[in-house]
């Protein structure tokens, strides 16, 4: 395949900032501190499998909640008039204009033991409830931060579903639920897989949300990796091995969602 000359800046960019760093990570993961070949890092990673499973589990819960929340929302948006659609999408995007850390800090002040929510319940003599530093708080933070990434791809696929297809389904005997099941869901599958990927991948690798809302008790794989590079447990070789493991997990998950999409037709995307 002939590569066009105009593509060279991108190729250079990719080589410098993607291929080479990836190669370095892979190299570090199979060497010890002295630079000798060793699989010790991967063996050490195994010890952290509860953390890895916890990460995957929380990310799956957050993704499923996002999907359940976003799907009806996106469908409703897509059936509104063009003006309404613009406003609603703007409202969805609005929180994203604020810094990610700030948004998560805001949740801290809400969820704390003497935070706003508990003070509110205190007025009625209830609580305080233990909300911060639970896995529930971590999932909440994930859902809150990544929900727009689920809504947007779903919405963009759903606006492309021709209204006459819905009418045709009604004409052929579908009530609203059957229209949803037989037409809208199959045709929106490309949006579902994109949304799932866009929520699951950052959720499984996050460390900010788990650190701020999960406290010490809810360590995720992201926290673990960060500690190896920046924290007290400084061990870049182990960190690299963990990164490789995380990457493999993400690749497997993406392959699974793509397989799922492959069952449905990809034509929907083209419409």
């Amino acid at each position: 395949m002939k590569v066009k000359a105009t593509a060279s800046p991108y190729l250079l960019w990719m080589a410098l900032f993607i291929i080479i760093p990836l190669g370095l990570v892979a190299y570090f993961s199979v060497t010890d501190r002295l630079g000798n070949f060793s699989l010790e890092n991967y063996r050490a990673s195994l010890a952290y499998s509860p953390v890895i499973f916890n990460s995957i589990w929380l990310a799956i819960i957050a993704t499923v909640i996002c999907l359940i929340l976003a799907y009806p929302l996106a469908y409703n948006f897509s059936r509104k008039s063009a003006n309404h659609q613009r406003t609603l999408i703007l409202l969805i995007m609005l929180p994203m204009w604020m810094n990610f850390l700030l948004r998560t800090y805001a949740w801290m002040t809400l969820l704390e033991n003497n935070g706003l929510i508990n003070r509110f319940f205190g007025l009625f003599g209830l609580g305080p409830f233990e909300m911060i530093n639970t896995s529930g708080a971590v999932v909440l933070g994930m859902v809150y931060n990544y929900l727009p990434f689920m809504i947007l791809p779903l919405y963009s696929v759903m606006t492309k579903i021709d209204h006459s297809l819905i009418e045709a389904a009604q004409d052929l005997g579908c009530n609203s639920i059957q229209v949803l099941k037989n037409v809208i869901i199959p045709l929106s599958m490309p949006g579902v897989t994109t949304g799932v990927t866009m929520v699951f991948v950052p959720a499984v690798s996050t460390f900010v949300i788990s650190r701020m809302l999960g406290g010490g008790s809810n360590m995720l794989i992201g926290d673990l990796i960060e500690m190896q590079f920046l924290g007290n447990a400084y061990n870049p070789n182990l960190g690299s091995a963990l990164s490789m493991v995380l990457m493999v997990i993400i690749l497997i998950c993406m392959a699974l969602t793509n397989m799922f999409e492959g069952v449905e037709e990809k034509e929907g995307m083209l419409l």
């Binding site: 006459s164 045709a168 419409l271």
Partner: peptide, 13 residues
């Protein structure tokens, strides 16, 4: 009653 739509509206999937 069934309808043949202007742009056919066949289900692409």
């Amino acid at each position: 009653i069934n309808t043949v739509f202007q742009r056919y509206a066949l289900f692409p999937h």
